[in-house]
Write a protein that binds this DNA or RNA. Structure first.
Lengths: 229, 229
DNA sequence: CTCATTTATCGAACATGTTTGATAATATAA
DNA sequence: TTATATTATCAAACATGTTCGATAAATGAG
């Protein structure tokens, strides 16, 4: 669990655990899939798993990290092709849900972790969270590389709040029982338009005073997440 | 656990469990306070507790129900005195946080159960949730009894979304480490003004088309929570 | 290669939420 | 009051996430 390199054997074992855990998780759900079952299928003692993962929740966390990696990868292409903020946001968030879809049954664990302020894995916790930090980078690029001309006060806030927007979408998705999460994708399509509209409105000089008030409010209450340096 | 009347002895025992559980929960936190400790302090066997509460989480849930009861009580006075939507909302939500403040350390459990769509206690679950339903009644009264003249399409949505707004405030509060939750109260003060502004704007005839689009969107994606009959 | 050190694994034990079957207490009906 | 039915309690057992101490395997320095 150090920054030092891991032995090949260790890597293989770790991967084996992840493989069987994923199968069991999606098949039986997070709670019903026991560490002992995972151990059996991975041909090892239950205790041995803990030499590779600190807790059961950390195994799930690893899947999110993997999804994020895949997502970041896929977004490179998206952000290269799309220039309009609305389209960039739409494709990025849709891709996130697409990639997460196979993990839907266990995704609520993400919010279970998030709900506990004490938990260092929580993306809402004050202290830096690796998950959130990595994800924020993506949204910074999404905003920075778009064609949108943003007022300065909006510019420094937008990425953080789009991240929050994505969390909201994910929360909706987790509770969405429509076939193939149809409603979630529809919600994305509708709300990104809304975001675009709001951003456009925010650039109208006439309403600058109101906008300033609004961004000042947002700035006061956004936790100082990942404010770079 | 039925609707039938409970014996006096049962009521006393149940109350005893709640008393010691609350003490232990706030003192040591939800996870650190064990059922065995609760049992010891309540002078009974661990198993006996389960004749009064189905699970440990249900004990916590009971505290929320108690808070809600207190809150509903306190809101009668508030809703009688305040007439303006902004003030009604402000006082109601502030009161909620005030009453919940002693329970802050264990309140994250609320969102922990909320995060699992399978959990019938989750206020986000599709099926009717007692917690949510009771809470929604309050917000219906809040809206209905206010002086605000609401367009019909806004009227049928507002209560539900104000409930959601309150959930957001609570989520913020749980992660708010400022002394006496100062920031949360400030957030309430600021955002209720925003709500008021939005409601006022929504009544301007000129923007009715935009508003209609917006409420149509909200209506499509709000789960059909507690739509009365 | 050899030996020392680090790492991986095992099996047992532990902590804790929960279940169970037996027993005692209590309420109810006659 | 007494017999019966219901309810409350108990101790033990169970399920499962996790820890621990010992042992085996792998690694690396000489």
């Amino acid at each position: 669990m150090s920054k030092s390199r891991m032995t090949p054997k260790s890597i293989r074992t770790r991967q084996k655990i992840l493989d069987v855990a994923l199968l069991l998780f999606v098949e039986k759900g997070y709670d019903k899939a026991t560490m002992r079952q995972i151990a059996v299928q991975a041909n090892m003692a239950p205790g041995s798993i803990y030499h590779h993962f600190p807790t059961k929740e950390h195994i799930v966390q690893t899947f999110y990290d993997m999804i994020h990696e895949e997502h970041a990868q896929a977004c490179v292409g998206i952000l290269r092709n799309e220039i309009k903020l609305e389209h960039r946001l739409r494709e990025v968030v849709r891709k996130k849900i697409e990639l997460a879809e196979p993990f839907k049954k266990i995704s609520y664990v993400l919010f279970r972790v998030a709900s506990n302020p004490q938990n260092p894995l929580s993306p809402f916790s004050a202290q830096s969270s690796p998950t959130r930090d990595r994800s924020l980078v993506l949204f910074r690029q999404l905003v920075a590389g778009s064609s949108a001309k943003l007022p300065a006060d909006v510019d420094i806030l937008l990425a953080d709040y789009l991240w929050l927007y994505q969390m909201g979408i994910i929360l909706y998705w987790i509770h969405d029982t429509s076939e193939n999460s149809r409603k979630t994708f529809r919600l994305i399509d509708r709300t990104v338009k809304l975001v675009q509209t709001l951003v456009e409105i925010s650039s109208i000089p006439l309403i600058a005073p109101f906008r300033k008030k609004f961004t000042k409010l947002m700035l006061e209450f956004v936790p100082d997440w990942g404010r770079p340096a």
